[in-house]
Amino acid sequence: MSVEGTERTVRCLVAKVGLDGHDRGAHVIARAFRDAGFEVVYSGLHRAPEDIVQAAVQEDVDVLGISILSGAHNTLVPKVIEGLEEYGAFEDTLILVGGIVPDDDVKELKELGVAEVFGPGTPMKETIEFVRNNVPERE
């Protein structure tokens, strides 16, 4: 609850999954989310899908932003989603993917349950707006 308590605090996990070591983008996103009033948990680099699942479940986040620049999204994202399903956390987690993803793959990821894929150069405002408008409702 924020000081004024008018809005529920949105909790996000910004996750770096896989082998690529570029987390500048993830840092920028984390800071922008914070400035938007979200609570951001940052996973650190080189996480395995099961680490991401553990963090997302334990931190009870509303939003899971996965940053993948290695091109391995087609193998890594399904594993994360499977893990979330196993813990009953898939339904009410908004899953976003950031990185360079070909159009065909975007379609596939969305079919799996990814809410949106944000490519390079997406204005931060757009991402934040998307989160605000699509955060899953909770009872």
Binding site: T9, F33, R34, A36, G37, E39, V40, Y42, S43, E59
Partner: peptide
């Protein structure tokens, strides 16, 4: 009201 929780 935002925060980056980095201990993890």
């Amino acid at each position: 009201g935002g925060a980056v929780l980095g201990d993890r």
